[in-house]
Design a protein around this nucleic acid. Structure first.
Lengths: 221, 221
DNA sequence: GTTTAATTTAAACATACGTTTGAATTATCG
DNA sequence: CGATAATTCAAACGTATGTTTAAATTAAAC
């Protein structure tokens, strides 16, 4: 109704081309001329439809990030329903966080591996855009932090944050650098197998979360 | 002797400035004019001393990466000596891999957090430079893979590679995105405390490596 | 002190960038 | 059909980029 049906497909073609090139070559290294050439559109069309390159980047992200975070929250809801009064299962919570992002690869309709790679890189890139985009993670972060706290009530906030941070690192690395693993493992590992990747990462992270607390620093064993 | 003593400190100033700015704003977003201004040197000095911006970037990296990987190998040697005939301790091996990189922050003489951040970002950045630089990781990767295989003889190559990959992801994320953790944890976590960070990451990764193998996919518990 | 090499400097190089403009074109609708 | 709005287009804008050049300066060697 409002206006989403008015747009020509030029808009979508620009978003697709930008998503693809941003993922492949980086944001700074991708020029509007690359993008418009890839999209078979005029150079000025980016500024006409989006206003600026930065706004285009934001639009590329805004188009996809919502569904991912929504699915995370839905899966977390499912975990908590399944657990009833008891705290949710740790592995279930971690999978709820990790799977929607890692499964992007299988879903070309939601950007496929291009968007997944771009999203994984976002955590690390030095763009000021991060701050804007991380707003969208706030609710996810809060909900999952609370759930993990219920899973592991004896764990300090500090350790819990650190371990969630490590998990995000493993996930982001998998999203953006899967090709490196494929290369170094010489065919032993297949990052394109999303189900297996999710299972491996969930098991790894759950075990990491479950490790004995290293808080008392005196012990040496 | 050869030529390393001939160079003026302009060379070093350029390397320092480039390291700082590459880490802070990204490689593509940093211009030679930024670098030469920061270094109080002439614009042409980069091309005089290094030949090109890309060669400068390589030099920035080559200056620091050697000692880090050397220390990794030395620490791994120490692990293996301490274990004698038995396989080395898993945590010892992981710490040998992780600590030299995470301790960069404390060592301004080796680039401090600037180089650490830049190095952490390297895994993810889309530069073709990666391929050149990853050559320098090959020996480290091979030695640590072998050591881990001795620690965990029943683990398949596939799972072992995946878990090492997850560990690298956690480490790289810590190196390049520590500020995010500091922000989201609202003061609960302090990424500047290198010793604690190393301990937390080592414990997390060791537990992840030690998780029951998820290979037989039928089980559901 | 003179000569030779190494380094620094200012200026210009050609190219690429993001953005803007105003006319041409296409679609929308009365 | 004619009028109005939306979109595309080629061209130019000013600015910034990495690199090169040739003269000026500094250091080294004899």
């Amino acid at each position: 109704m409002s206006d989403s049906t008015r747009h020509t497909d030029t808009r979508e073609r620009l978003l697709d081309a930008a998503e693809y090139l941003f993922a492949q070559r980086g944001v700074d290294a991708t020029s509007l001329r690359h993008i418009t050439a890839e999209a078979a559109a005029n150079l000025a069309s980016v500024n006409y439809h989006f206003g600026s390159k930065e706004a285009l980047f934001r639009a590329v992200f805004a188009r996809r990030i919502g569904p991912v975070n929504q699915e995370r929250l839905e899966r977390l809801d499912a975990c908590e329903r399944a657990a009833g009064q008891r705290p949710p299962e740790l592995e279930c919570v971690l999978e709820a966080f990790v799977a929607p992002a890692l499964r992007l690869r299988l879903d070309p309709a939601h950007g496929g591996e291009h968007f997944m790679c771009l999203m994984g890189r976002l955590y690390t890139e030095p763009h000021g855009l991060k701050t804007v985009i991380f707003e969208q993670f706030r609710e996810v972060f809060q909900r999952f932090t609370e759930a993990l706290h219920r899973c592991l009530p004896d764990m300090s906030r500090e350790v819990l944050f650190w371990r969630l941070f490590f998990t995000v690192g493993s996930m982001a690395h998998t999203m953006s650098a899967g090709a490196i693993l494929e290369h170094f493992s010489q065919g032993h590992c297949d990052p394109a197998d999303a189900d297996k990747t999710i299972r491996y990462l969930t098991v790894f992270a759950a075990a990491g979360f479950g490790a004995a607390l290293p808080e008392s620093s005196g012990e040496s064993t």
